[in-house]
């Protein structure tokens, strides 16, 4: 079963490099003003995905540097979002699953008008194109979420840690 490694089974890489979490976004006076509109910006998209749990480690994608704010691009006016993610190792077997989790999180969290593009940071994974193709295929994403086992793992990645 894919899930957080518990108990006696050792992890492949028990001591990965940890990156610092960015703090909560400070609330500005402008944001508290009832009248002024706030555009959806890169940081807002990054905040949606940075706390997704890694399927293997009890760590977030941000802490493992799988997602970074500089690899998130949003154009609110054109309604497009592009996210690049970087697997921790080039043969990471979880790459598709991580991409799927990001995609599902964005689908659930963004207005329908947005067109989403989630893909692997170029040159960081052995099966980059295959994974990107799967993630871009709406029907395959929908089919994956019909699979209750996959859905369970994705939901675990998206659940708030207790």
């Amino acid at each position: 079963m894919v899930g957080p490694g518990l108990g006696a089974a050792p992890l492949e890489n028990a001591n990965p490099l940890i990156y610092r979490r960015s703090g909560e976004r400070p609330v500005t006076a402008r944001e508290e003003d009832d009248e002024l509109p706030d555009a959806i910006d890169d940081r807002e998209i990054f905040d949606l995905i940075r706390s997704i749990n890694d399927p293997e480690h009890p760590l977030t994608l941000e802490e493992l540097n799988v997602v970074e704010q500089m690899r998130v691009k949003v154009d609110d006016a054109q309604s497009t979002v592009s996210v690049e993610f970087t697997p921790t190792i080039p043969h990471c077997s979880m790459a598709t699953l991580i991409g799927l989790s990001i995609k599902v999180k964005l689908l659930r969290s963004l207005p329908e008008r947005f067109k989403l593009d989630v893909h692997i940071t170029p040159g960081t994974h052995a099966s980059e194109h295959a994974v990107n193709k799967q993630l871009a295929d709406k029907e395959r994403v929908a089919a994956a979420l019909e699979n209750s086992h996959l859905l369970e793992v994705v939901n675990q990645c998206l659940s708030a840690r207790s």
Binding site: V27, E31, E32, D34, P37, D38, I40, E44, D47, L48, K105, R108, S109, L110, P111, E112, R113, L158
Partner: peptide, 20 residues
Amino acid sequence: AKPLDDKKRLVRKEAVAARG
């Protein structure tokens, strides 16, 4: 889905959490 597109960021944040 509607408050996900609220003009205020603080509202969107709550909508995301609730909808998720």
